[in-house]
């Protein structure tokens, strides 16, 4: 184990290389640029490729090429850049290409600003591009998890032949914390379906086109079956002091770090509060959520977006208990006091 103090944006690249990723194609954008900086620094000397692409669109299509060729490959961007990549992500999902996309979310819409937001939730978790597809979405809340979940992303991408996002905010990307790096993986899994310019792969085809409606429906059904398995097997969530909790705070990314402090403060005051942090946003952690709803008086979802996460929580809870929203936007981060006061207000109401 090697322990180092570094930025989330750098940790995700070092983790990726330890996970066997040897190709990075990306376009600079704040607050994700340090990912490209680190990839430019380390990919070539670790036997990989780094290209600063001419556009976000070109970058995701280079990813498409490298994934077709069987490489573990990644790209990274932020809000506006992710919007541009969406067509390519849809193609990757349609052609069932494993790849990892890191989204360090900034303020929107439009040019917005470069402060941290969570407003890419819908465009990432709901698919974002055209067609009936899903991507697996991991949501780290620390620099350590930028490494750990980044590495997991490559495994899940290969396991399910699907794009996997690492979705987090400008704070997690920019902050520095100690990270313990594991040993590199032995070797990446064999993929018989890729094109390698070899005898064995000369009959292989990477495509997302199916002209015949019945064929395309079958392809779509196969994708949906895959997503159903992902939903069943890959839900991940952290529960913090939820054992006897009557009030459950829900948040991911940087928000969950703040919620943890809020929960501690509420507990000191004798309030039975706990936190549920989705680690996977797709698959959504429905199992933990429905379990906690049985004993909780209410849920409070806290997010740095306009109620995107809370929509999913409400879909799961189906009105069984009240699900409230506290949110900030524009790059403002909710403070411990704001959230604490909101909980107090809701307790008086209920």
């Amino acid at each position: 184990m090697a322990k180092q103090f570094l930025k989330g944006n750098e940790a995700v690249v070092k983790g990726a290389i330890l996970a066997g990723c040897r190709a990075y194609y990306g376009y600079p954008i704040t607050p994700a640029s340090e990912i490209a900086h680190a990839a430019a620094m380390y990919m070539p000397i670790c036997g990989g490729t780094f290209i600063q692409a001419e556009s976000e669109v070109a970058a995701i299509n280079m990813v498409y090429g490298a994934a077709s060729a069987g490489e573990r490959v990644m790209t990274a961007s932020s809000g506006p850049g992710i919007s541009l990549k969406q067509e390519g992500v849809s193609y990757c999902a349609g052609s069932e290409l494993p790849c990892v996309i890191v989204d360090i979310v900034r303020g929107g819409p439009g040019l917005g600003n470069i402060a941290p937001e969570q407003s890419d939730y819908n465009q990432v978790v709901k698919g974002g591009g055209h067609g009936n597809y899903k991507v697996i979405v991991l949501a780290p809340n620390s620099v350590q998890e930028m490494c750990d979940l980044g590495m997991l992303a490559f495994d899940l991408a290969d396991k399910y032949r699907n794009p996997v996002y690492v979705l987090t905010d400008g704070f997690i990307g920019q902050m520095m914390e100690p990270v313990e790096f594991p040993e590199p993986i032995e070797k990446i899994p064999e993929k018989s379906w890729v094109v390698k310019g070899t005898d064995e792969t000369s009959n292989n085809l990477i495509t997302s086109i199916e002209l015949d409606p019945d064929d395309l429906e079958r392809h779509n059904q196969k994708l949906q079956q895959k997503y159903a398995i992902v939903k069943e097997q890959e839900q991940r969530a952290e529960e913090y002091r939820t054992d006897d909790a009557e009030i459950i705070l829900i948040g991911y990314g940087i928000v969950s770090r703040i919620l943890q402090t809020v929960v501690d403060k509420l507990r000191e005051e004798g309030v039975k509060a706990g936190m549920l942090r989705p680690i996977t946003l797709f698959p959504f952690p429905t199992k933990s959520m429905t379990k906690l709803a049985k004993s909780a008086k209410f849920f409070l979802t806290v997010e740095m977006s306009n109620g995107q996460l809370v929509d999913d929580v409400r879909l799961i809870i189906e009105g069984k208990i009240p699900v409230y929203l506290y949110n900030r936007m524009g790059g403002n981060v909710p403070s411990i006091k704001e959230i604490h006061d909101e909980v107090m207000k809701l307790m008086r109401l209920s």
């Binding site: 190709a23 194609y25 490729t49 290209i51 692409a53 669109v57 070109a58 970058a59 299509n61 280079m62 990813v63 498409y64 090429g65 490298a66 994934a67 077709s68 060729a69 069987g70 490489e71 490959v73 094109v195 390698k196 310019g197």
Partner: peptide, 10 residues
Amino acid sequence: AVATGIKRAH
């Protein structure tokens, strides 16, 4: 762009 990703890999 796709060709770039493939050729760099192989």
